[in-house]
């Protein structure tokens, strides 16, 4: 089942997805190498979030094939869970569990999915809270934290599962401007450690400092892709230029 060294970490082949008559993804092909930091940009409704959500099967593609770390994502429940165990996901609205403390948020899946003891899972949780810079908030509930702190807990919660891939779905869009940096700093550190990352975001600072490749999507298709300097500096397609002119002011 495991991936051979020559295979990409994520392989997306001819993937299409419809919501009713609306074509969210139109025969998308994409591969992500191990250790690569890929950024997906594009207007809303372009399919970038849908593509991300197909990778861990939160959305089921109508056609095509997705292989994650050598495992084909299909409707087989065991395959889906095997893939999800390798793939961490960070949501726009954090989605921390509000009835649990920060520490319990990070420990729950470790104990129920990875079958770790309470001691072991808490030890890992403390290390990660240290890493994202908020060990002093461990016993609070998510509602008592700022948005930036909540998102850092969400990242720690995913990392506790020791994933090989991290997916970020607009991780800073719901944050006040002064909190964006603290989340991006954690993401930059993660990229520097060699984590394979797929990031849906328009944060130019992150693109310039961490992304290996930027993909521009529109109307369910990949319009163009390349190094950040190339895409932001000299976009080839009219739609890319138009989009960038709107977000880069």
């Amino acid at each position: 089942m495991s991936r051979s060294a020559s295979q990409p970490m994520i392989l997306i082949e001819n993937v299409s997805k419809y919501f009713g008559a609306f074509r969210a993804l139109d025969q998308v092909n994409l591969s992500v190498e191990a250790g690569e930091v890929l950024m997906i940009i594009g207007p809303s409704g372009s399919g970038k979030s849908t593509l991300l959500r197909c990778i861990n099967h939160l959305e089921v593609p109508d056609a095509g094939r997705i292989v994650v770390d050598g495992i084909t994502v299909n409707n087989n429940e065991a395959h889906i869970n095997a893939v999800r165990a390798e793939v961490g996901m960070v949501f726009q609205r954090f989605e921390l569990f509000p009835h649990l403390t920060v520490l319990e948020n990070i420990c729950l899946a470790q104990q129920k999915v990875r079958r770790r003891s309470r001691r072991e899972s808490e030890q890992i949780a403390w290390q990660l809270l240290e890493k994202v810079g908020i060990p002093d908030q461990a016993h609070k509930h998510p509602g008592q934290l700022s948005g930036g702190q909540q998102q850092r807990v969400a990242i720690a919660r995913s990392l506790a599962m020791q994933p090989k891939i991290m997916l970020f779905d607009e991780p800073t869009s719901a944050l006040d401007p002064e909190m964006i940096k603290e989340v991006l700093d954690v993401m930059l550190a993660l990229a520097a450690e060699g984590m394979t990352m797929v990031v849906v975001s328009h944060e130019m600072g992150f693109a310039r400092n961490a992304a290996n490749r930027v993909v521009f999507m529109d109307q369910g298709r990949i319009i163009e892709q390349g190094a950040p300097e190339a895409i932001f500096g000299a976009p080839q397609h009219e739609r890319t230029k138009l989009f960038l002119s709107r977000i880069l002011h």
């Binding site: 869970n81 999800r84 921390l96 009835h99």
Partner: peptide
């Protein structure tokens, strides 16, 4: 989103119901 977050952490549907959805 709560169910999605629980599932994306590898929890089964039953586990997500039991530990995340029902308590809330």
């Amino acid at each position: 989103g709560q169910m999605e977050a629980a599932r994306s952490l590898g929890m089964s549907h039953v586990q997500a119901m039991r530990y995340v959805i029902l308590p809330q």
